[in-house]
Nucleic acid binder design. Structure first.
Lengths: 240, 240
DNA sequence: CGATAGGTTGAGTCTTCTCAAAGATCGTGG
DNA sequence: CCACGATCTTTGAGAAGACTCAACCTATCG
């Protein structure tokens, strides 16, 4: 396992430099692999590990009574999933591998112990939770007030932000095995509506959809196409 | 000022008994009063205090580009507002007094210092942030998949939960100066839609709407009227 | 008692949903 | 390398829900 990767991931997630090595001291990390479709944990389970993605794609899902599902979050390499369980260990959604995935598990109990030795890091964790909360507020505003096209733009913006963070060569090309149904489930609309939303975005020349690859052709212009009522502050430079 | 009130409020919010007095040690709390419509802080401001509501009604608002507003949260007495700013101090929404309001301000810097002496409390703060995050996820599911009636039910459930927590004699009577426009702004629909949603709920005999007073006549039956697709897990016994 | 804010109701429009069929793409096995 | 099946996407038509606009009703307060 590449421990440097995890050390760097911790510092990227916490936005604090130089603490990753210390935080992994005396922590028994191990590598886990999941196949596409495997469930890492179910809603309601006790979560005992943080997971640092090294390869693949993870999504958080809530299942509705009628069989529909709400995809709450997508996680890519460098993401560390589970900070929200440092306080309360009960999983608030299913965590599912979206494709073959490799992740490094970090026992929460041990991690919390090393956090005690680094107040700076502990503060950063709290700060991270704040950012995640704020991001969710923003998404709530989009869901409450935006139309389908705006929701799609918000969604693409979020994925792109992570690729920018990861310093990918071409952050505008989202290399993701994502069907329109997946996007629909993330945005609370139907696949038909997603298809029509992409048709509009393609007609405007800002996006090129292609399963397995979505390409953002004109990022600034894309943002302008979001309905004006949610434009302000709806696109922070964040990725939580 | 009634310090006992704040001590008890801290313990209620953190869900930990016996720590309130310690946490207020050497903390310079003070009482502030705001008139209806006053802004406590604006989005983007640095937040330097927690606020414990002792009287009145506070709401968190985001303003949209077209003048619409999204009401993100309502806070009532015993609530402590601002835990999400312990990490990152930048306000993510306007905080506005909805009616004449009295609150006790608790300097964040001092509070964080006393937190260091009580790891149990520090853990409880993290736990609280987790609960808030989870609540927002739930609301996102309702906004994404629920119809107007379901959103109203979710909203009333949330207000009632706080009254239950506060041990009000009649938790089913929401004594709130809330217009239909306010509810509309909280749920991302129009006042006309709210009017029609209440008409349906009143026809079903589960709610009685009356400005300045909303009465839940049949709580279990009300929950049953929410659209089946969001029924599961959409109504946790929480109030964050 | 009138002014004002808030609530209700109706008609027409728009967006999204549902249902359904047809077209495109991908992976696999022959 | 092609054919086939499975999955995904596109398109159309009709229905449902929410929105807009506007008029009218109601309660409250000075």
């Amino acid at each position: 396992m590449n421990e440097d990767f995890v050390v760097s991931a911790i510092e990227t997630n916490l936005q604090v430099a130089g603490v990753g090595r210390t935080l992994l001291d005396n922590v028994d990390v191990s590598v886990l692999r999941f196949n596409a479709g495997d469930t890492v944990h179910h809603m309601g389970d006790e979560v005992t590990n943080l997971y640092c993605l090294t390869e693949g794609w993870i999504t958080l899902i809530r299942h509705m009574a009628n069989g529909d599902r709400q995809l709450l979050n997508f996680h890519v390499p460098i993401d560390i999933v589970g900070f929200e369980y440092l306080g309360r260990a009960t999983a608030t959604s299913d965590m599912v591998a979206f494709r073959d995935t490799e992740l490094v598990s970090i026992p929460i109990q041990q991690f919390k112990r090393t956090l005690l030795a680094s107040p700076e890091s502990a503060a950063a964790v709290t700060s991270l939770l704040s950012r995640k909360y704020s991001s969710l507020q923003t998404r709530l505003c989009v869901f409450a007030n935006g139309n389908a096209v705006t929701k799609v733009i918000h969604f693409l913006h979020g994925l792109r932000s992570k690729q920018v963070r990861n310093r990918y060569d071409d952050a505008d090309t989202l290399r993701i095995p994502l069907t329109q149904q997946d996007i629909a489930d993330a945005l609370g609309v139907t696949n038909v509506t997603i298809s029509r939303a992409f048709a509009k975005l393609e007609a405007a020349g800002v996006v090129d959809f292609n399963s397995n690859r979505i390409r953002i052709l004109d990022y600034p212009k894309m943002l302008e196409l979001s309905s004006s009522d949610v434009a302000a502050n709806m696109f922070p430079d964040e990725f939580d």
